[in-house]
């Protein structure tokens, strides 16, 4: 096969164009890999920053709650206890007609002291850690029943075991957020909590029989985002569903001690 000058020019220029294209593709591949690595690193950094931010927000909140719990227990609680003591001292001198009234007031103060103590318990992260997850939930549930907010119950299955302290507080705070929503907004009459322990996982399901909410409208609500981001922090799957028959949250916590 013989080629004249024009044909050689065509062949050479086609080959040059081909080479340029191949080199461009190769250069692009290298550039793209570098850019991808850079973007991935940036994303990773952003995630880390968000994690630190959530962690510090939780820490600040927990500290604030701890201070409130102390104030309630040591200050308000003590003042009420003192008031009750004074009232009891005063009681023998009260005229007969007023005695039942004073007795009633003393009883009311007693109930308030008990409520404040149990509230301060569930607010204080140290107390929650000491009580453990199930007992902390029970304490909140007893409070709801005592205050006759609704008919609350808890069912525990499997053999319970200790979870890391930080994780207990986060799980409990998620549930508390749900309980608060139930009491404040749902108009529910019952609240059921089920905790199931297996060797590798802890399943928690809480549901009420309230009016529910429109998932499309409330999906972006801060309470829900808070619950989700907290669950993410301890690598727990979080699911909330709602319809006109009630609202339910499901948490699946993986026991990190099991490898």
């Amino acid at each position: 096969m013989e080629f004249d000058e024009i044909q050689i020019v065509i062949l050479v220029s086609s080959f040059v164009l081909f080479t340029i294209l191949v080199v461009a593709v190769l250069l692009f591949t290298i550039f793209q890999k570098k850019k991808t690595d850079f973007l991935m690193r940036e994303k990773e950094q952003e995630k880390r920053f968000e994690k630190i931010l959530t962690e510090s927000q939780i820490e600040i909140r927990e500290n604030a709650l701890k201070n409130i719990a102390w104030e309630l227990h040591d200050n308000v609680g003590q003042l009420l206890a003192l008031a009750r003591l004074e009232l009891n001292i005063l009681q023998p001198n009260v005229k007969d007609g007023n005695a039942p009234k004073v007795q009633e007031i003393s009883q009311l103060i007693g109930d308030s002291i008990q409520d404040i103590r149990s509230l301060s318990k569930t607010l204080n992260p140290e107390v929650i850690n000491n009580m453990g997850l199930v007992q902390a939930i029970e304490s909140d549930i007893n409070r709801f029943n005592r205050l006759k907010f609704l008919d609350a119950s808890i069912k525990v299955e499997g053999e319970t075991y200790d979870l890391p302290e930080k994780d207990i507080v986060i799980l409990f705070r998620i549930l508390q957020e749900f309980f608060n929503n139930t009491v404040k907004h749902s108009k529910a009459t019952t609240l059921k909590v089920e905790v199931t322990y297996t060797s590798s996982k802890v399943y928690i399901c809480a549901k009420d029989n309230g009016k529910g909410y429109d998932e499309n409208l409330i999906k972006k609500g801060s309470g829900l985002i808070n619950m989700k981001s907290r669950a993410d922090l301890i690598k727990t799957t979080f699911k909330q569903t709602s319809n006109s028959k009630g609202t339910k949250i499901e948490l699946v916590y993986t026991n990190k001690e099991i490898k």
Binding site: V9, I10, S14, L17, F18, L21
Partner: peptide, 16 residues
Amino acid sequence: LGVLFYNIIPLPLFVT
């Protein structure tokens, strides 16, 4: 990429 190769490589031939 395919379309680029298909159109660029024979360009000198077409122009000629």
